[in-house]
Simulated scan of single mutants.
Amino acid sequence: MENLHKLHIANHALESGKTLNLNLFYETFGPEMGTAPIVLVNHALTGNSTVSGKNGWWQNLIGKEKTIDTNHFTVIAFNVPGNGYDQNPENLIENYKDFTARDIAQIFWKGLQRLEVDHLFAIIGGSLGGGIAWEMAALRPNALEHLIPIASDWKATDWVIANVLVQDQILNNSDEPIHDARLHAMLLYRTPQSLTLRFNREKSENRYEIENWLFSHGHKLQNRFRLASYKLMNHLLKTVDITRNCGNFIDVASRISAQITIVSVDSDQFYLAEENRIDVSELRPFKQNISYHEIRSVHGHDAFLIEYDQLSRILNPIFSTAPASVYCKS
């Protein structure tokens, strides 16, 4: 984390009416800002700002001569304040229910403003990161060329809200809250078929391999997250809604001038592809520059972190034609 940079955001007003001071940590990859088109990458629930390089969680997609080529694009990634990646106790947010995904979107825009960035070539994000991308585009509909939400949605469905509640109950009542919450969450991110393909009921030392795998994920997350951080990140999932106090979906989304490229996973059981298909069909009569793509995979929601060949084929046309004029310092 030696590449982390910090911005101090003072007197930020939340949707809840509360005001706070916070530190916003970020990383950059590629050319110096102001010399190339800028891509903002929003991380998912357990992700962070390290999106490229040796330990980058999206290193197969972002880097030199990758789909988002850091020879030609400046990539910025913020950490959601309070996600704990900076290991800074003062940045840990205890009152997690005070925050919404829109608050995070506003904070990210403030961070970009501090960096003198007023226009983006693209905002891209998977899962929660895609929801925050939607919120950012709705807040500043003319400030980006491409909006790319992946395995995501512009709103939290009843299914997402219900599972956030289950996670929150585990986090507030279990003896090993992060560990146990992660066991449940992993079953939302994969499919029965994916687990069968991988484990096939095999055992090791009198325990099923699927059980070993789940316990391993639980322990890893327990070592990565503080409890308040995980509570916050889980809570944000249910707050995504670009229409809250803003009108209906068609009104809000049609004002976004960017090309919207929606990418779903056909087997996703968390953000259903059918929801995205309906959104695109409803929006298309009012907005021509929108496209829909679907990753075919047995792996469910996590396919956006697995099926890199398919994802690259979808994104290559966007990132191979970046206009040299879309630089972004004001």
Rank of each mutant, 00 (worst) to 15 (best):
R224V: 06
R190I: 04
P285L: 12
E275Q: 13
R255C: 10
T196K: 14
N206I: 04
R182N: 13
R224C: 04
A181I: 03
S216Q: 14
I242F: 06
T243G: 05
V240R: 08
R226W: 12
S216G: 04
V280H: 11
I262V: 13
R226K: 15
G218S: 07
L188H: 13
V263S: 03
A253F: 00
H235D: 09
I170M: 06
E176K: 10
S204E: 14
E282H: 08
L272P: 07
Q193G: 07
C246E: 08
L171H: 05
D266M: 08
T191Q: 12
N276G: 03
N248D: 15
Q259P: 01
F249C: 01
Q167L: 04
P192Y: 14
S229G: 12
L232E: 07
T239L: 11
D279C: 10
S229V: 02
S194F: 06
E211Y: 09
L232Y: 04
I170N: 05
E209L: 15
E274R: 13
S257M: 02
D241A: 08
N212S: 15
S194M: 11
N173C: 12
K238E: 07
H235S: 07
A181R: 02
S281N: 15
S267R: 00
V263A: 03
T191I: 12
S254H: 02
E176L: 09
L197K: 15
T191P: 07
H219G: 10
E275K: 11
D168V: 09
H184L: 14
H179D: 06
I242R: 04
H184E: 06
N248V: 01
T191V: 11
E274K: 14
T243S: 12
S216I: 01
L195D: 10
P192H: 12
Q288C: 04
S229E: 09
D168N: 11
L195F: 12
L183E: 10
I278M: 12
K203W: 14
D175F: 05
I278R: 13
R190C: 08
N289D: 15
R224H: 10
S281P: 07
R284F: 11
R277C: 08
S204I: 06
H217F: 15
L283A: 06
R255H: 07
T243K: 02
